[in-house]
Computed example of a mutant assay.
Amino acid sequence: MNWKRYTALLLPGLLLAGCYTAPQRPLDSAGQRQPAPVSSVPDNAAVVTPAEERGIQITAYEPAPAIPLTPLHSRAVGALLKTALEQERTDDLNGAVGTIERALRIEPRNAHLWYRLASLRLTQGRHLLAADLANKSLTLAGGDVALKRDGWQLIARARRAAGDVSGAKVAERKARRLQ
């Protein structure tokens, strides 16, 4: 019969039951066990005390304030960014692109630099290249939601300028999801 199967299931349970010890009440100063506390509330009744009485403070959920994430970069990259901004201000877009590319050789995993380069390429009218560079920025952005949103918006503008209206709409939807 299947008594072997039942024995195999029952034996571990019996062994564990033999290891059980009932919870102990603390000893009083004379070494005697204290009697169980007597309650006027029946055992099956639930006692609910207000949160204030238990010392619990209840507040509504408020999300943490958004902390603007500033790009962290070395001093050399900071100096190059400053130079690139000055070059862009004086309409030297090719010089600004070259300066950002130099900064990327120093910090190739800096998502903000890739976004900046994509923005410059979009301004130059190199739409497909701008979308590709913004996509590179997205892959390196990590948890920087603002940079990701800006990247998707740049991709949408670049695709729309290149004539890819459906691709632009997809990128705009992705940007809206990050707001």
Rank of each mutant, 00 (worst) to 15 (best):
T90L: 06
Q153I: 10
Q32A: 13
R5H: 05
L138S: 02
H127C: 12
A64Q: 03
I106S: 01
R149N: 08
A45W: 15
R126N: 14
R75E: 09
P71V: 12
A84T: 10
I67R: 15
T90Y: 09
S40Q: 08
E53C: 01
D43G: 14
W3A: 10
E101V: 06
T83D: 10
L113P: 01
Q34D: 09
T90A: 09
T90E: 04
G78H: 11
T49G: 02
L15V: 11
G167M: 06
V47Q: 10
R25T: 07
G151E: 12
S29C: 13
N110C: 02
L113R: 07
P26F: 12
T21M: 11
V77S: 00
A146R: 15
A46R: 08
D28K: 07
H127F: 15
G142R: 02
A103N: 01
A168F: 09
A17E: 05
P71C: 05
E101D: 08
I100N: 04
E88L: 06
P108D: 14
N110E: 06
P71M: 12
T49Y: 03
S40Y: 10
A17F: 10
A168N: 06
R160F: 15
A130D: 04
A51D: 13
L85F: 06
R173Y: 13
L85E: 10
L11G: 03
L16I: 13
R105E: 10
L178M: 10
E172C: 00
L16G: 03
V38Y: 10
R149L: 04
G18H: 07
T59V: 13
V48E: 01
D144F: 00
L27E: 15
A76K: 13
E101H: 01
R102F: 01
K82N: 13
D144E: 03
G95M: 01
L80K: 07
P65T: 14
L178G: 05
T7L: 13
A64M: 08
A175I: 11
T90H: 02
G55D: 05
Q179S: 12
Y20W: 15
L11S: 09
L16Q: 00
E53F: 11
N2M: 00
T21R: 15
S137N: 00
R177H: 09
K136I: 11
K148L: 06
D28Q: 13
L10R: 01
G78V: 10
N2T: 02
A96G: 02
T59F: 06
V47D: 00
A96E: 05
D43T: 09
Q124Y: 04
Y20S: 11
Y20M: 11
K169G: 07
R33W: 09
S39L: 05
P71Q: 09
K148N: 06
V97I: 15
I155N: 03
I100P: 07
D164L: 08
P42M: 09
N110W: 08
A17Y: 14
R157V: 06
D43F: 15
L117M: 05
E53G: 04
T49M: 10
